[in-house]
């Protein structure tokens, strides 16, 4: 019964587009197991094939090699109508559902379940209401979709996917072009959904910080490499997370969980309390100012002063900007 821990599995799957006899391979030898009722984030640079991967999972695109199994069956062999009851999606496509209210839009999620004319049964209505409550959009139910803000719209789209009531929900960059607060809200919402509604969720995202904070598992997709899967914390501790950053200049700071430029040592000529010297150093790096050998800067707190000492004189500055101006003139 080990297999039942996973909802979606793939063994050496190659994805890409087939056109006539030629095929364009985008990703190769992807091996993965999507855990049930967990939040998994798929990370990777633009153009690495994340969206193609999702299309393949949804059975809209055949895999070039290997097969993706939903439960025990390959997705390709599952009837589209049945698959719609199992997997629901939130896409990046902009929608223009004129004149639809939020409740009507969420009800569209019931499409695979309703009769030929799409009549909602009491049970359907209950599921729709539950989906709106779970995404905290119930208060919007009578509002028109065209009047929503981007953040609200995204939550409503999640509610629709939830109303479709599949076991697996796939979201393609649900937090793109949202503000920071909404990004956090959406990702935490998804986490709640996995726990309270027993859904498995796969999210494509570029927000590494938030992904680390909320995901149960990260999948890192990198051109030409096999898919890297693991708990975010493990990936950080083993340094594998640096795979996301192929460039030499960036590295992942395992203390703060942020991406930083690699070489960033504090020069010994800057002295003073911690956070201030760090920010001062950042300002100097940004403006590519390196201190000459005889210059030293002494920082004191309350009142904030930067004492720039040179053999022949001392300059006192009250702000980082003044330091920069002085050094740019006299360095």
């Amino acid at each position: 019964m080990v297999k039942d821990k996973y909802i979606l599995t793939g063994q050496n799957v190659s994805i890409g587009y087939k056109k006539g006899k030629s095929s364009k391979k985008i990703g190769a030898s992807l091996t993965f197991k999507l855990q049930k009722e967990k939040l998994t984030c798929l990370l990777g640079p633009n153009g690495v094939g994340k969206s193609t991967f999702i299309k393949t999972i949804m059975g809209q695109l055949p895999s070039l090699e290997g097969s993706i199994n939903f439960g025990h069956l390959p997705v390709q062999e599952i009837d589209a109508k049945l698959l719609a009851k199992k997997i629901s999606v939130v896409l990046t496509d902009r929608i223009s559902p004129g004149n639809l209210s939020v409740a009507q839009l969420v009800s569209l999620g019931r499409t695979p379940f309703t009769n030929w004319i799409g009549k909602l049964t009491l049970e359907d209505k209950e599921i729709v209401n539950e989906a709106m409550k779970a995404t905290k959009t119930y208060y919007l139910k009578d509002q028109l979709v065209s009047e929503l803000s981007d953040g609200q719209l995204q939550k409503v789209m999640i509610a629709r996917a939830l109303a479709q009531d599949g076991d697996l929900i796939i979201l393609d960059e649900p937090t793109a072009h949202l503000d920071l607060v909404n990004r956090y809200e959406i990702m935490h919402l998804l986490r709640e959904v996995t726990q309270n509604k027993h859904k498995s969720i796969l999210v494509i995202t570029h927000d590494l910080d938030i992904a680390i904070e909320t995901a149960d598992e990260l999948w890192i997709m990198q051109c030409g490499d096999p898919l890297l899967c693991g708990t975010p914390e493990d990936l950080i501790l083993s340094g594998k997370i640096n795979k996301l950053l192929p460039s030499e200049e960036l590295s992942f700071d395992s203390n703060t969980g942020k991406i930083r430029p690699k070489s960033f040592p504090l020069p010994p000529s800057i002295k003073g309390p911690q956070p201030i010297t760090q920010w001062l150093n950042l300002a100097l790096q940004k403006n590519s100012i390196s201190l000459s050998e005889e210059t030293s800067i002494h920082v004191t707190e309350a009142p904030l002063t930067f004492e720039i000492s040179r053999p022949n004189f001392v300059f006192k500055a009250q702000s980082v900007q003044e330091v920069l101006q002085f050094l740019q003139k006299n360095n």
Binding site: M58, Q60, A80, K81, L82, L83, A84, K85, I87, S88, V89, L91, D93, I95, P97, G98, L100, L105, L108, G109, T111, P112, T114, W116, I117, G118, Q164
Partner: peptide, 23 residues
């Protein structure tokens, strides 16, 4: 008449409609 439901799903665009089982 037979496809009214599919047309409703089409309001969200082709890809969403496909994901909801519309052929």
């Amino acid at each position: 008449i037979a496809l009214l439901k599919s047309y409703n799903a089409m309001l969200m665009g082709e890809r969403y409609a496909t994901s909801m089982g519309v052929n």
